[in-house]
Amino acid sequence: MSTPEIEEVAEAMLELVTVTKGKKNLKAMDLTKAMIEKFGDENVDKKLCKKAIRSLIDSGRCVYSYFGGSYITLPSEETQEG
């Protein structure tokens, strides 16, 4: 497997956030660990994942949400902490 582009990692992250919606809230580090596992630590590192997360957020595909901690979620989710 070769080193993926930032957008490829961002899309893989988006897919993960989408399939876990309603089941598990994911933090930035959860996404990073998942990508390193998926693409291999020789191809993906924390810096690349940071750029991918930034791309996801800046493009509006994901947003940060606060539920006692900061998570990365889909923008359509409407939740609140009591």
Partner: peptide, 12 residues
């Protein structure tokens, strides 16, 4: 009540 989804674009 507090929390949820408010913020400015790009910031968490």
């Amino acid at each position: 009540k507090h929390g949820g989804l408010v913020g400015v674009m790009g910031y968490g």
